[in-house]
Structure formats: C-alpha cells, structure tokens
Design a protein around this nucleic acid. Structure first.
Lengths: 324, 324
DNA sequence: TTGAAAGCGCTAACAA
DNA sequence: TTGTTAGCGCTTTCAA
C-alpha cells in the first residue's frame, strides 16, 4: 500500500480511503490511486486489515450435512454471492450435533469472523447469543423464528397445500410422516405445517402415523418400515426431506410395496437426486439458490450497517413427479 | 497473549514459544503457561499471526463443481481433517472454467493461503507455477502427473479391468465411452486407461464410439443419444463419471432402451446417487473420503517441512450393481 | 532458558 | 481534501 501511495504521490491513508470509500477523495486523486493500484497489481493484505479492524474476511457456513445436495448447492451459491465482497466462505459440517454447532459458533467468535450463516439443527436460539454479544452478523436459515437475528425462512404453505390436495384427491386418507428427530430445534416445522393443513383437508396425522429419525437415508428406511408395520397402513407418506424419502423408497422396493400404487410418497427440498430415483420423487422444492442469495443479501445489508433484523421468506414450490 | 504472559509470570515471547514449540521451554514454565491459557480461555489471533508470518490459516479447496456429491464429500472430509490443525477450508467452485481456476490460484497467492487443494479440470500444470513460486503448498488431485507437486491420484487399473471382465464375459464387444471434454487437462485419463485395457480384452474403443462432453447430466444424455445413433450401437457404455452416467440413464429411459439388457452402463466415482437410480449404477468407485484424507496428509507433511514432492495413490474399487 | 523489542500492513483518530 | 501516526497481536531476532 505504501508502494501504491508513493506511485500515486499520496499518503497511504488516502489509498486506504480510496479502497474503502470511507471518506471523500478528490476525483483526480482517486484516479491516480486507482491507476497505481492497477499498475502495481496491488491487493490488500487481509491479515493486516483484519488485525487492525478486528474483523476477518471469513464467513462461516454452518450446516448439518454438506453431503446433502441441498447444502452443497447452498454452499456453491453463497460462495459465489459473497466472492465479490472479498469474503471467503468457510464450510463447517456439524453432523447435526449441537456440540459441534456450538463449538463452531465459538470459533467464529474467537476468530472474529465477518459473519455466520447457519442452518441450525439442534442448536437453540439462545446459543446464538455468543454471536450477537460479539457483534458478529448472523443469518439463520430455519423454519421457526429464531429470535432477534436475520433469518431466511420458507413459505411452504401453498406448496404443502397443493401436495395435500393431490394426495386427498386420490382418496388417500391415512397420511403419515417420517419427521426429523424430536430433539431437533423447533421440533419439525414441516410436520407442524402438514398437521395444520391436513386438518383443513379433513384428515389428520394420528400419533401412530408420525415416526421420527435423523435426516438420513437409513432413518428413512427404518421409518418407512415402521409405518408399514402399523395395523392400518398409511397410504401417503410425507418425509421431512428428500434424503429420508429416498431411504423410504429403498425400503418400499425391498418390501415390494408399490409407489405410488399402494403408498404415495412426498419429499422436501428437491435435492438433486429427487428426479433420479424411480419413481421420480414428488417433492416440495425449497430452492437452495434462492436461500443462498437471500442469506448473502441479508449479510451484505448487515455489514453495510443495517441494525434492525429482518426475515426473508423464500417460497417453496410443489413439484409433482411420479411418487404420488 | 499479553494477558496469558502476565498470568503465568513470563513474557509473551515464552507464551508464543509454548504454543509453537519452536524453542525449548522449561517444563514448569510450560505448565504454568498452559494453565494460564486454559484459565483465560486464550485463543491466538490468527490475523495477527498471519500478518506476522505472512501465511494465513486458509486452505483453498478448488473444485469444478461442488454440487457433484464426490466433491461435496471431499469438502466434508478435508474440512474435518484440517480442522485439528487450525486450518480453515475455503471452498471454491470453478464451474470447470480455466479462467476461474487461474483466478482462484492467483487469489490464494495474494491472500497468502496456507495451502491449496485443487482438482484441476482445464488448468494446465504450468498454471500451478504461481503457487510454487509463492511457496504455497499445493496438493493436486488428478489422474495425470502434474509436475513437481504433491498429488493424489487414483489407481483404477484393477477396478477397470474387473469392469471390462464383467462386460466382456457377457459377450459385449462394442464398448463405448462418454468421456470428458477434449480440452480438459490431460485429455481424459479414464478413457485412456479403458482404451489400454480394452485392447487386452480383445476389443477396442473405435473413434466413433467415443463421444465427449462436460461432466454434466445434460452432456451425458446427449452423449448417450449420439451413441445410440451410430450404425452399430454399442452394447456397453462407460462414462467419465456418475453424473454423466445418470444423464445417459435419463436418455435410455427416454428412448426406451433397456439397461442393462440392450446396453450395459458403467460410471465412475460412486457418487451418492449411484445406488439410487434404477437400475442401480455399476461404477468404479473412487473414494472421496480417502482422497480427502490423503490430501490432508500431504498438506500436513508439507507444512511440517517436507520438501520432496510425493504422490499418493488411492485405489479405485469396482462396484457391481445392476446396470451391467 | 528467558526477555525485550521491532515490525508485519493496515485503519482511523487527529491534525492541518 | 489530505497527511501523520499510533497501534492492532503476534513472531522472531538479538541479547542476556
């Protein structure tokens, strides 16, 4: 930076101000500095900047499972969106464990991260306190309200309604769900929404038709098997996400149960493989790209000085394929 | 750190040496410092360290496509392996573009990254010069030799042989491949290997049975369609990776071609969805976890001072499912 | 075996 | 509108 200042005939402070735009700089001066920067190929030393400002250029993306295509896509989008701001995305996989989630938040604080984007799984809203106390911008991607933070949340009402319409139109009445684990943050909002809407369609999700498990293929298979053991089998099974749905599909094949003939299957997310399985999975699409863009926008605004927290709703979309 | 020094009754230099182990410290002193660190919950400021040493704590993971489950898994493993070393993994998606690959390398240099793990797609070996010139440890994950760098490369000979054995045992003779693009780095080593081995099995891959495209589902579908247009259709199609293979499967369904009845299909990688499609995909598994661990190990050794470059071979494994 | 102190490159308070 | 300068927290050289 000293080199640039010398080349442009100004002080290094001026170079810094040209870069940051935090103080007015005469147009000629600005031009000269910019020319020198280009000429010398100067790039700021982020370590020095971080040391001085107490803020790094890192944004932590904390997710339960990077291998889930939804989160892989989220990673890709977020990284792309933040790159232009000189921010780097550090991916952190918690494997859905609360201790990992907390540890990663603590690390973000210790390392003075520029921000955190988190999809909490078992984390509690109060755990975010460490971030807000440290003044680190946080964006939470979650269905349930998470307190005074920026949030991107799905609006899945219409899509879920469509799914129910299709299911009930086919005279399916015994609706079940393979939900997430009971101790997940906020229970399972997708289950709650389905429950609320099902009532409007004159059906219900009785307790014995709700089974729970992790967001894994194995848990999906187990959950499906369990449901098929019920005295009155369900004729439609909703799954908390597509990974679970695929596990259910595995089990259906294994048991020789026809999908959708005997049982309709609905997933959530529209993960990349949803259109790959047979039958192709009917699902409630939650667009990772839009979530990523919304999170990036919220983060940007916050870094630009917004102080009030904001929630962006991303509309889910019903994708009718062959499993209903 | 000054706080820790005060609490332990030593100088901050001693605290630094306790942390780094770069100079002998009396056991009692060490104990006192460690106690103070624990007591105060001290964590080093990586920005200050980076500024001083000229090395950040970031490792770039540069891949052609994060959404490809192979790379998603690689990300997860690498991140997990490097976390203990205090290194953060920054994911960078190049979308298979050479300019992006080059730009990201340049950035790694400018930001003085601790290391780079890259799966080059169109990058040329000489492009890595910027890293080696800057003394930044690089680990390349590629089939072809990439010059004087640490490398993890597959050993797919045995697995490919097994695949060919199975295919030819079924009297399939017209073997085709949907390979990667012609301008990819090193051509397509998986094609070259298949070619070499096919000869040993008394068959060949004639020019008109090799088609090329990006590593995408769409390209896979197009490639397959193209092959099915040949005067003598192939009866076995190898694909450069599973994403391509899935595209081929799409097209086969569309054209009403029976897999494996009419055409056998073999993929590469064993991406998560390979076992999801119908028929389940026979593939040559390249274990992302092992690749990630090997890359982490190479990086660690290099950071620990190794200077000679080293190549770690990771064995691929033939996974027979239902598409052959 | 330990300490004192310089200085990495930047930002921002203060001065002009 | 611009410049001067202190100092962020660490590592490492030099000295003891």
């Amino acid at each position: 930076m000293a080199d640039v200042a010398r080349a442009a005939g100004v002080s290094s402070a001026t170079v810094s101000y040209v870069l940051s735009g935090k103080r007015a700089v005469a147009p000629e001066t600005r031009t000269a500095v910019e020319a020198a920067i280009a000429e010398l190929g100067f790039v700021v030393n982020t370590a020095a900047r971080s040391l001085r400002t107490g803020r790094s250029s890192l944004v932590a993306l904390i997710v339960p499972d990077i291998a889930n295509p939804f989160f892989a896509q989220l990673t890709a989008t977020l990284q792309e969106e933040l790159r232009g701001l000189g921010l780097h995305v550090v991916v952190c996989d918690t494997r859905a464990r609360r201790e990992e989630e907390r540890a990663l938040l603590a690390e973000a604080v210790q390392q003075r991260f520029a921000g955190v984007v988190i999809t909490p799984f078992r984390l509690l809203p109060k755990d975010l306190g460490v971030l807000t106390d440290a003044g680190i911008p946080a964006v939470v991607s979650a269905d349930v309200p998470f307190g005074a933070v920026d949030q991107v949340a799905p609006d899945a009402r219409a899509a879920t309604r469509q799914a129910l319409e299709l299911v009930t139109a086919a005279r399916r009445r015994r609706i079940a769900m393979i939900a997430g684990p009971r101790d997940a943050t906020g229970g399972d909002p997708r289950l709650e929404l389905l429950r609320a809407l099902a009532r409007q369609y004159g059906t219900a999700l009785p307790g014995d038709l709700v089974v729970r498990g992790e967001h894994t293929r194995e848990a999906g298979a187990e959950g499906f098997a369990e449901l098929m053991d019920r005295r009155y089998r369900p004729d439609a099974v909703f799954c908390a996400n597509d990974v679970i749905a695929v596990g259910a599909l595995d089990k259906a094949h294994e048991l020789g149960i026809d999908i959708p003939g005997e049982v309709a299957l609905v997933g959530h997310d529209d993960a990349a493989f949803a259109s790959l399985v047979r039958p192709r999975l009917t699902t409630i699409r939650y667009p990772a790209e839009e979530v990523g863009r919304a999170a990036a926008r919220l983060l940007r605004e916050r870094l630009d000085g917004r102080t009030a927290h904001r929630t962006v709703r991303v509309k889910a979309e019903f994708v009718a394929r062959a499993s209903v």
